[in-house]
Write a protein that binds this DNA or RNA. Structure first.
Lengths: 196, 196
DNA sequence: TATTTGTTTAACATGCTTGTTAATCACGCG
DNA sequence: CGCGTGATTAACAAGCATGTTAAACAAATA
């Protein structure tokens, strides 16, 4: 199962071979079919689990009871850290979804409720902040999308970004931390904007 | 060749079948091998072309001689429009690169020079603006990354985003236009920020 | 007309991948 | 002890994808 996760995440559904998964797990490939019947079956379980993980990552954006701006900052930071620890997750999910629209069902079932809940909570926070006199121009959805966009894309494009900026492998973490600060600044810039 | 582009873009290298490509092109699969020798060979040509396309998309961010803020706005808009017209391009490139690090070479060769040039020009624009008294807090690289992040991720996640926001297929363009405005606002918010 | 060169085709070879199967094994229980 | 259930194995079946090949073909050239 863990072997399957690794293999599928690394190569995707089509390129992953059941024999390799079995070998990595230390069992014969007949055994693997004995337990999971088909590759599709095994994949579904992995995919479900990974979607769940991705959904949970949204929740990390909302953090404990701390002042508003700090909360956003912490949320962005935690989210990026999560992605940095699971760098293949977003690409894997995106790829498998566009490659096989059937999987959107799983996606809808798991992602939709979490997404709605997080947006709702975030909206409440924004509303509360607005009532306290702050000028918060964005809708929760918009804010959420902005944060997720920059965080996820940072991870997605990390190999290319490191190529283009000629960053060495050992400076990866440093690169990410710097980028994190930039994202926080960009997000906060709109939230702290003085409105006419 | 065009058939190959479509097939590879839709399914990726592994899932694309040379027989399907041949069938779509209206030739026998033996013919296809006669001209291109191997699948890998054919793919390389397609990949090169697509990377080139992606590189060119960066250039659209810089537009004609118009005022600074408007230029940024136009650039973001043009870039997103380009991506909307080539929605599978970013995911395809990202997937094939992480799936086969050898391809990073092609990526470096084509992307790097364009990237450097664009960043350079953008930096000049920012510097000029700064000299004119504006407070432009970002480096060109940072600005670029922010824009590209939000634009690309918007396209990457469009299927999921439409699922989560319960947007219907026929409202796709409207959804994108609204998102475009949000992105422009987010980008400009930092550029027009009043600095202490 | 005969020859050469490059194109096209059908048929084949090979290897790999998923999935099955029948025989064997291990072990708890009547 | 013997029996039965589930686990395990090796061997196999079928299908499919890539790539080759040898023969037929077409067209230009000598």
């Amino acid at each position: 199962m863990l072997a399957a996760e690794v293999e599928f995440m690394e190569k995707g559904f089509v390129a992953a071979k059941t024999t390799d998964i079995a070998r990595r797990a230390g069992v014969t490939h007949a055994m693997l079919h004995y337990y999971y019947r088909t590759k599709e079956n095994l994949f579904k379980q992995v995919f479900q689990k990974k979607i769940q993980l991705l959904a949970d990552s949204f929740v990390t954006i909302l953090s404990q009871e701390i002042p508003f701006l700090e909360k956003i900052q912490q949320g962005v930071s935690a989210h990026l850290d999560f992605l940095a620890a699971n760098p293949r997750l977003p690409l894997f999910v995106l790829w498998e979804i566009v490659g096989n629209p059937d999987r959107q069902e799983t996606c809808r079932e798991v992602l939709l409720p979490v997404f709605k809940k997080v947006i709702e909570e975030l909206q409440e926070i924004l509303d509360a902040e607005r009532r306290r006199g702050a000028s918060v121009p964005e809708s929760a959805q918009e804010l959420m999308l902005n944060i997720v966009s920059m965080n996820v894309f940072t991870i997605l494009s990390l190999p290319i970004a490191m190529l283009l900026t000629e960053t060495r492998e050992e400076d990866r973490d440093q690169f990410l931390q710097r980028r994190k600060q930039q994202i926080v600044r960009q997000v906060l810039s709109q939230l702290t904007e003085n409105h006419k």
